[in-house]
Design a protein around this nucleic acid. Structure first.
Lengths: 143, 143
DNA sequence: AAAGATGTAACTGAAACGGTTACAATAAAA
DNA sequence: TTTTATTGTAACCGTTTCAGTTACATCTTT
């Protein structure tokens, strides 16, 4: 399975908020830029708000990013919008046979290895920030 | 989203085939060890066969692993059983607005970064082999 | 021919995804 | 105070994937 497009949409939202910081940023505007429905954006806004990454002005509209972009990592965004049960990247089959020597031990054997892969991926996500996106976006826009 | 349990089931299958190599390994046996349905196993067998990792004896039954376990990586198994469109880990939203400076460039900006994360994860999967699983499983079983 | 296995089609229920409509709640402006 | 613009959220929808299940054709050996 793929990581849902909520992740790239959320990053796109941050890019909009920052790029057009002179204007009030609404869900309609972002929906138009991303190419989706405003309600999708508002649901994402709620997830990002719950994660403490933004503040949303009800009624009047407008979004404020709560931290400098360099202090918001891809992992922060990923965790905010991606719903993986127990934060587990791998879904382990749930009923291995305890009477079989393989079934009884496969979990012990695999858990460490799978956690290591997940941890490596999360470290990589953590090494990229929205500040990097801002910087690269400015370069592309000015081309 | 999570990586499907087909991945851990497939590794479990290899562990069965190797651990019980004295006997003929059938889909019924593996289904019992994994705790699922034989047809699930047979579908996985087809995917692993298509990837060239095993040979399945039709009619008579039995599975042969085509390479030494140390030469089969988690990435081989992952690619064999996980169906991600275009091998892309991240699902990019598909209709960014070309008229918006952000929408027009977001793909350029993110592609490299997302590919890097994916590549890192794949490298980590590639560093673990079924030989490692065999070794650790033997330790656990003999406890 | 019988037995035992794989290969595969067809179906199911559940969950997640992305989207859509509708509307209540809110805040500011007129 | 009314209007306007916006967010918040519930209730759907169609699609896809997942894991499972039944049924049965096919194959190989006995």
């Amino acid at each position: 399975m793929q990581i849902s497009s909520r992740f790239t949409m959320a990053i796109h939202m941050f890019a909009c908020i920052d790029t057009f910081k002179e204007q009030k940023m609404t869900s309609d505007f972002m929906a138009a830029s991303i190419g989706t429905n405003p309600v999708i954006i508002r649901k994402l806004l709620q997830q990002l708000k719950a994660a403490g990454l933004i503040e949303v002005a009800r009624g009047t509209g407008g979004v404020r990013i709560t931290r400098p972009l360099e202090n918001i990592t891809f992992l922060d965004v990923y965790r905010a919008v991606e719903c993986t049960p127990d934060n587990e990247l791998f879904h382990f089959h749930e009923n291995p046979n305890e009477k079989c020597p393989v079934g009884r031990n496969i979990h012990h054997v695999l858990d460490d290895k799978l956690n290591k892969v997940q941890k490596t991926m999360e470290n990589e996500l953590e090494a990229i920030t929205l500040g990097d996106v801002k910087k690269d976006l400015q370069e592309w826009v000015s081309k």
